[in-house]
Design a protein around this nucleic acid. Structure first.
Lengths: 331, 331
DNA sequence: TGTTTGAACATCTATATATATGTTTCTTTA
DNA sequence: TAAAGAAACATATATATAGATGTTCAAACA
């Protein structure tokens, strides 16, 4: 089968589904091969015998055109690397959904959407987490019991339920068998959100818009520092909570209650601040038993609230550091 | 060798190179393991026995921290998948440069930068294109001759010279042998621009800033349309030059001289515009022998210049289409 | 100070992608 | 209209990455 045959098959499938189909795009440079419309549905379709032949620039252009024309970009092909594309499986190429003619036909003429997507590691099925959880609880089954039954870890079942992980095909079949309900989430060819990663990003964006995150006490403190005239750059995986900077200085900024780990963190921050040539401050939400750890200055929230601008903060830091040096010496 | 051993070795290497080294970061969540400074150089370093263990979020955080602290993020490890990391080779993991301890030591203590990078397809070396071209021309050798000598295609040699492609190791060795000059471009661990793809993007950005692209006649015509009040979205791989849209309509917009392919293009645009529910216009830079092709309206640049706003353009299109329908009928 | 919880790592597997190039097909030029 | 030139395609190869999970070690909790 050549690309030529492919195009004829694609046109045949879409025509039978009632699509109006444009002439073939034979002009170079080209991205898609045909456009097709049925009602509100517009498809820009590229045919490639080997879907790996799609190149990045072409993919970008197809997405771009689809966006501005209000349609969907897809690739229809026959093989990838050394194997044929499987029926009912979708593949992603530069974030463009790719499938074979049979799967296209099932979708538009038989009303059977694909259920399986190819991803690094193999073929996976996306499940309805709520349905699974409900079914499991209805049968009063624990995570552990179910996990053992289908041969995966407890953590994995838990992730299926919160839709944080796709499952392999045999696991889904077993689960559907156990509960007698459909769990597989059909894949919409027309508005594909691409990979799970992109899907997650899109979803969390949507969630953020709906339910504004309730600010934590620590965020309020960072906000206070920001009010003093600092750029506050929050971190998620560092020994400090943020990097605060203004024109003249950069400050590693820790924030927390006073607990046993504060001193450990403050030590580490001191060490890092020496190397990074920054200042180091730890804001304590509540009472602090000590005033500084090496060159990390500990400031209680009450004290911070009395400070009005960045210069006052710098003065406060310098003063406390000097006093402490006199009292305790440098470690 | 464990991660523990690795960290000690890294610290040893950096200490011998005269770096000041921070305490180890043992606190969770963590991204980097140690920070190290020497003069203006600041390194955030993570140790991983298997560099594949780096996860995306950690990589993002390391780049973020490095950027705001004015330093470089690197991963030092020992293996990837089932093989050891090779000496003098750098690997990319989520766009963070990764290497083994030996390569790190060569760089900072022996002043030997790595030359080879791992990429899909194998190991590659980046060459100085100008040096190669100069050497080849000095020996008055043609692309074809040289290509045959090292066993690659003419096109490939050409791409090496314009630095659009990296070469495999044996090719570089042969070339250096033939010309007796060093061609390999040393890799800077500290400001790595990541993959070739990223590098190209950065370079072309820089070029665009320095030498503003001279506008082509076709761009000027698109500009004219933009002046009429349209959003003009240029395309690079479509049978039309742009999609122009305002509040009420979307227009597939072709632009070129009048030549033999114009009619072919206009036909295709007509077909696509039917399917995409858009209008279709072809601006002719010069004289046009015909006024329309199916529902694609051909407009000479002179005519376009007389039009003052988007409504006038729409009227013009409708009028010409109707006239033509009467004269020639719909194809 | 144990105990529990969860992050970090190492590891396995199969897919996705970048480099490289020969062949085919379209476009342009003489 | 034929020849030259340029895309597009198919394909080979090895790396990069996502899903999945057991083990280890640090944090949080009682």
């Amino acid at each position: 089968m050549t690309k030529e045959d492919l195009i004829h098959q694609i046109i045949d499938v879409l025509a039978r589904a009632g699509f109006a189909i444009s002439d073939r795009c034979n002009i170079r440079p080209r991205s898609f091969d045909v456009a097709a419309r049925k009602g509100e549905i517009l498809i820009l379709c590229k045919a490639l015998f080997n879907i790996d032949g799609l190149n990045e620039e072409t993919a970008r252009e197809m997405k771009y055109l689809a966006e501005y024309l209000g349609g969907s970009a897809i690739v229809v092909g026959a093989k990838t690397r050394d194997q044929m594309l499987e029926d009912s499986v979708v593949y992603m190429r530069y974030d463009i959904l790719s499938l074979n003619v049979q799967t296209l036909n099932d979708y538009f003429n038989e009303n059977i959407p694909p259920l399986v997507s190819a991803a690094p590691g193999g073929l996976y099925v996306s499940m309805e987490g709520n349905t699974l959880k409900k079914a499991r609880i209805d049968k009063s089954m624990s995570l552990g019991t179910l996990a053992t039954m289908v041969g995966v870890s407890r953590r994995t079942i838990s992730k299926y339920e919160e839709e944080g992980m796709d499952a392999s095909i045999d696991v889904v079949l077993q689960l559907e068998d156990i509960f007698g309900v459909e769990l597989a989430r059909p894949i919409n060819i027309l508005n594909s959100y691409g990979s799970r990663k992109l899907r997650k990003k899109t979803e969390s964006d949507a969630e953020n818009q709906i339910t504004p995150v309730r600010p934590m006490p620590e965020d309020l403190i960072l906000n206070t520092i920001s009010m003093l005239g600092y750029d506050v750059l929050p971190t998620t995986q560092a020994p400090f909570k943020a990097i605060s900077r203004d024109k003249s200085s950069v400050i590693l900024t820790g924030v927390s209650e006073f607990n046993t780990t504060v001193i450990k963190r403050a030590h580490l921050m001191s060490s890092i601040s020496c190397v990074t040539h920054t200042k180091s401050v730890f804001i304590i939400n509540g009472h602090s038993k000590i005033k500084s750890v090496e060159n990390t200055v500990l400031i209680e929230k009450k004290e911070l609230d009395k400070i009005n601008d960045s210069q006052e903060l710098l003065d406060f830091i310098e003063e406390r550091k000097e006093n402490d040096d006199e009292n305790k010496g440098v470690f």
